[in-house]
Design a protein around this nucleic acid. Structure first.
Length: 288
DNA sequence: AAGACGAAAGTGGTTGA
DNA sequence: TCAACAACTTTCGTCTT
């Protein structure tokens, strides 16, 4: 899917960023009269939630020259120096601002590590801002909350990243991220849909480099399984792993349990257990 | 010899008193 | 706050391809 807002082509089911630098092919605004010109004029970069002051602040450059390139006289130079100093101080002034600046850079860092699309960064930043506003950060680590916010964003945007994935790129551990995730969801009253095994099926099949028809079959099996209520109460990754395994077996594109287990981050035993359960209730030959 | 299978004990998180 | 509980993991011996 093309996402012109973030300038990326992103697979919506697995969050894989195909191309990151996409030229804006959308139409330039055209103005036909003065009024339209006023409305449609572009003024600088779009605002973003990723920079602590939304990218709206001004900086005074460090050249001691005026617009004509002339050096300032001695008195004015001192004045400009003082201006610059206060500008800096105001920009990242109090503790909360500094905190926010640090947190947002942390969010960008982690997201970039995980190759997450820009809209995830934006969404996570918004969540973090809300958390700050509601005074939820007190007594918690910035790392924990930022990682939690990213996980929230992934879940909201349907990008399948596990807690494990995120904890790899964050200084916070899995447990802490899970805790702050639950905390954020509860306090900010977010409603987040549970992940469907289908999303993982897509992800796993891609990571296993399997043919399209295998994935298709896996989804079919999954559908029948969920119809038979074999999926509730089970971990979505476990179901997806088992279904992928069955599909690979049926199509002859064999993958070992271990291979799948590694990608799905579950154990072979669990895949076997799910596999056994499914095998008891489904006649696989129907699909062949 | 690698992979699949399964029993049994262990782990971490949720639930309900 | 604590114990019961279900899902999942770890470990390890055995069977199958």
């Amino acid at each position: 899917m093309k996402d012109h807002e973030s300038g990326e082509i992103v697979c919506m089911s697995c969050g894989y960023v195909v191309i990151t630098k996409l030229t804006d092919q959308g139409p330039e605004w055209r103005a036909f009269d003065a009024e339209q010109l006023k409305k449609r004029a572009r003024a600088g970069a779009p605002t973003t939630f990723t920079i602590h002051d939304k990218g709206l602040s001004t900086t005074i450059d460090w050249h001691d020259r005026d617009i004509h390139g002339q050096r300032f006289p001695q008195g004015q130079k001192a004045q400009i120096y003082r201006l610059r100093k206060w500008q800096r101080r105001i920009r990242v002034s109090d503790a909360t601002e500094r905190n926010l600046a640090f947190a947002l850079s942390e969010i960008s860092k982690i997201s970039n590590n995980l190759n997450l699309p820009k809209n995830i960064i934006e969404t996570a930043s918004v969540t973090y801002r809300k958390a700050v506003k509601e005074r939820l950060i007190r007594g918690r680590t910035i790392q924990g909350i930022t990682a939690g916010a990213i996980y929230v964003a992934c879940r909201q945007c349907g990008v399948t990243r596990t807690l494990e994935d995120i904890s790899q790129a964050s200084p916070a551990n899995k447990k802490e991220i899970a805790r702050s995730y639950r905390f954020l969801v509860k306090e900010l009253e977010y409603f987040i849909k549970p992940v469907k095994p289908g999303q993982y099926v897509t992800k796993f099949c891609n990571q296993l480099a399997m043919q399209g028809n295998v994935e298709e079959l896996a989804h079919k099996i999954l559908f029948v399984a969920s119809e038979l209520r074999l999926t509730s109460g089970r971990g979505p990754t476990c179901i997806a792993a088992a279904v992928s395994y069955i599909a690979s077996k049926l199509t002859g594109e064999r993958k070992t349990q271990r291979e799948i287990a590694e990608i799905a981050q579950v154990t072979e035993v669990t895949i076997r257990n799910r596999y056994k359960e499914l095998a008891e209730h489904l006649q696989f030959k129907v699909y062949l």
